[in-house]
Design a protein around this nucleic acid. Sequence first.
DNA 1: AAAAAGACTATAGAAGTAGTAGACTTTATT
DNA 2: AATAAAGTCTACTACTTCTATAGTCTTTTT
Lengths: 145, 145
Amino acid sequence: MLSKKTKYAIKALVALGKNAGNPPMQIVRLAEQEMIPRKFLEQILLDMRNAGYLYSKKGAGGGYSLNKEPGDIYLADILRITDGPIAMVPCASLKFYRKCDECHDEVTCGIRKTFIDVRDATLKVLAQTSIADVIARETDESIVN
Amino acid sequence: MLSKKTKYAIKALVALGKNAGNPPMQIVRLAEQEMIPRKFLEQILLDMRNAGYLYSKKGAGGGYSLNKEPGDIYLADILRITDGPIAMVPCASLKFYRKCDECHDEVTCGIRKTFIDVRDATLKVLAQTSIADVIARETDESIVN
DNA sequence: AAAAAGACTATAGAAGTAGTAGACTTTATT
DNA sequence: AATAAAGTCTACTACTTCTATAGTCTTTTT
């Protein structure tokens, strides 16, 4: 399951994406608008900023805005910042590889091979879906289930 | 991330699959062989048994064996027993659907639509991979990464 | 100087995961 | 019939991670 942190992060990026062109948005406003606990959102935005996705400005008239085009921010990258690995087992992770505790022989592990397939299938979606895509889909009612 | 419970469950099913034809396997032996804490494994096997995947026999000479063909036990079903939903958000789950707390309008939610795609991609692998497939892949060294 | 914003660190509470304990039931063997 | 060998079931504890909150500091504008 996605953490709330990740959901909040995506919602914040979407909101900031829609706000592009306008003056930066303050944390408080974003929090209210998206129904996210203010101080929690603060941390999340900081993470995203430190990862280069957001630009922030202090002082009166300051706030947050996107530091990239919405079309260049992919969900896979966001998830990795907020939730860590995308793979379901550490030994199948591309960016957070770690040996599984329970695994003696990784090369012949049937479980690992299967979950590498799962990872690839998941990434095929998440690494190709950008914030712009998410925004575009919001108004597209063609997909029902 | 997969819970240890799920990993243990898969390993146990694989071991029991390989043991098919022989007398049932005792929990203690299975636990030792697969390096799974005995009492924890006990619970897991019970769950799998109550879900119809295992047959158990009490008393001397008793133990556990598969109640289905290894080819008829799919990872998706196991995961659902041990970890619950496969989707990354409750509102995108087929078997464990629940409304997301943060979501006002589900129909137009771009996040939901994307994670339905992820769910489908994941299921395409997990609902088609059986314990028999996992066993088969163990000896197949053709897949390296 | 004051006010408006974000930056950063620490901590607390809640929930979920992993593992342990123990008493009970069924079955086979002697 | 008694004993031993298994699985059954429920409760509980420890640990970790997630969610959220608090407070102090820094920067920028007016």
